[in-house]
Amino acid sequence: MTAVTAIAAFFAWAGAAAIVLADGRRGLAVGVGLVALGFTALTWADGAWLKGAFLLAGGALCAIELLRRGAQDWGLMPPGSTPRLILASVGAILALWFAASLTTGPDAPLRFACVAVLGLAAGRVLQGNAGASVLSASAALAIALASASALAPSDPGFAPYLIGGVIAGGASLLPVAEPSGA
């Protein structure tokens, strides 16, 4: 089980890294899909099947919508993306330090995945200008925040997972309003 959760946490980080590194819709869809898959596996490993299903459904809907609409390209690591590559790597190292060294106790893979995805998705929202990349990062944020509720001392119930899944799925359906007059 430990190996499975470790791999799931790595998937979540890899997904967030893809969202940071990609400008094209295919790359972003793969990123959101990996984030959803990673957190779903972490949730299922805890025996919470329904909660995981909410996250998977939200992430899958977002990824499918990204693939259905707009220009289909990967846009992975376009020229000038060295700072983003450094962000993805440093984010992983810091998250690993937080989850495995600074903090103690069980759920280290979940802590790693949450910190890594929160940091990288927030970085992408701050840095991105295109609607698709910002919405993909928001979907990843929603999934990570919902999953982080499992670290609460008491059972958070299904609500954070349901809301997180709805937001992740709904983010890709939002019309990206172009700037207009008052």
Binding site: G131, L135, I167
Partner: peptide, 19 residues
Amino acid sequence: VLTLGIALLHAALAGRRSL
């Protein structure tokens, strides 16, 4: 999580700034 949802809906409103 609710705040993120509200932020997304607010950002999708037609306005003068980008999403």
